[in-house]
């Protein structure tokens, strides 16, 4: 089974037509890959479906806007994948 990063990178590559080999764990979805908020909705949709979770985009956006978090915490891909793994684990624990 491929890693969370591999799955997310494939989703981003296919959804946003970004060459797969340019996407790394240290890529920032917004600053490095140039993904805008509307394109990120498509990515969130694909991630939600693939992992059976609901990315809390509103909560994350609010935290960034309030200065309680940085975009790097959620949108650098290795960090995004860690959040996904946490959500998947929490879902498994509550099932």
């Amino acid at each position: 089974m491929s890693s969370t990063f591999d799955q997310v990178a494939t989703i981003i590559a296919e959804t946003c037509d970004i060459p797969r080999d340019t996407i790394t764990p240290d890529s920032h979805a917004i600053d490095d890959l140039g993904i805008d908020s509307l394109d990120f909705l498509d990515i969130a949709f694909a991630i939600d479906k693939q992992f059976g979770i609901k990315l809390p985009l509103e909560k994350w956006t609010q935290e960034v806007n309030d200065g309680k978090a940085t975009t790097e915490q959620y949108f650098v891909l290795k960090n995004l994948c860690a959040r996904i793994d946490e959500l998947v684990a929490a879902k498994g624990a509550s099932a």
Partner: peptide, 9 residues
Amino acid sequence: VHEGSGYAM
């Protein structure tokens, strides 16, 4: 089709 966080399809 899908209700996400702050968006829906």
